[in-house]
Computed example of a mutant assay.
Amino acid sequence: MPSEASEPADPRAVRRLTLEKDGPLLVEGPVEVRLEDGTVVSSDRFCVALCRCRRSKRYPWCDTSHRRRTRR
């Protein structure tokens, strides 16, 4: 769900990003994601999975669509 962009409480706060082989980008949350069209979506979950394959029907959130097809 889109939300208004706001400044993080501490801009120096470290976020851990984990790249999963042939899978999503895991980000320790909460997070805000600015999409190509300028829309900002946010999640207050402790960890979110961001889609890297663009197959997700819930983009930018991963819905495990990458499992249906493997890269060569």
Rank of each mutant, 00 (worst) to 15 (best):
R67F: 10
R69P: 06
R54M: 11
T39K: 10
S3L: 04
R68V: 03
R69D: 12
V31Y: 03
L17T: 10
P30N: 12
S3Y: 03
E7F: 01
D22L: 08
C51H: 04
G29T: 09
T18K: 04
V40T: 09
C53V: 05
Y59R: 01
R45P: 00
S6H: 12
E32S: 08
R55C: 10
D37R: 03
R54F: 12
C62H: 10
R72W: 13
T18C: 01
E4W: 02
R68Q: 15
R67Q: 14
T39S: 09
D10W: 00
A49H: 05
L19N: 06
C47Y: 03
K57H: 07
D22A: 09
G29I: 02
C51P: 05
R45E: 13
S6V: 09
E32Q: 13
Y59E: 02
A49Q: 06
T64K: 13
L17E: 08
T70A: 15
P60K: 01
L50S: 01
A5Y: 08
L50R: 01
A9Y: 03
R72N: 15
H66R: 07
R55N: 07
D44S: 10
R16P: 00
P8L: 02
E36K: 12
S56P: 05
R68D: 15
P60F: 01
L25P: 05
E32R: 07
C51L: 06
W61M: 07
L50C: 05
L17H: 02
R54N: 13
R16D: 07
P2R: 12
V40D: 05
G38E: 08
K21M: 09
D22S: 10
E4T: 12
S6W: 04
R52E: 06
L19C: 04
S6M: 11
R69T: 13
R67W: 11
R54H: 11
P2D: 06
L19S: 11
S3Q: 04
C62S: 07
E7Q: 12
R55V: 07
G38W: 05
A49M: 06
E4Q: 13
T39M: 02
R71N: 14
E7W: 02
T39L: 05
F46L: 11
S65F: 10
K57C: 05
P8K: 04
P30Q: 09
